[in-house]
Amino acid sequence: MLKQITVTVNGAQHTAEVEPRLLLVHLIREVLNLTGTHIGCDTSSCGACTILLDGKSVKSCTILAVQANGKSVTTIEGMIQNGELHPLQEGFKENHALQCGFCTPGMIMRATELLANNPNPTEEEIRWGISGNLCRCTGYNNIVKAIEYAGAKMRGEEPASTEPQFV
């Protein structure tokens, strides 16, 4: 009944014997102990468990671990490269785009693919692009700003000021 799977996670290959019903998010969190990926719901609604599967953002609570066999997974722990924060990680911090931090990893992973597909998105495109990720703390304004900031950085442009703007 157990299936052997091999999954590359953040560049490292892992082999595990798993029950077919094991969810990918539980493989990541409980077998591989990468707890940066969170679980916020049971209906694929909140997006806290978003990771990249072969570069596509997906909700790891609605994918079986066996489905990731032979595939490549990137989690929030894999975003830092050579000790450098990813522009999105930097953007979230600089723009106060997180409060409790629970939705943040999923939000960042989703935004990674959003910017890969659309390097210079409009505010409307960003809002629709993160519509599968719930944040209960920030009201989203600063998440939009953070993604714009990262987009600018990744295009080699100067990002907008991170100072809060008041009317």
Partner: peptide, 12 residues
């Protein structure tokens, strides 16, 4: 498609 679920779900 824009109105079906959300981007992650549409990836699957």
């Amino acid at each position: 498609t824009k109105l079906i679920a959300d981007p992650q779900v549409r990836n699957r």
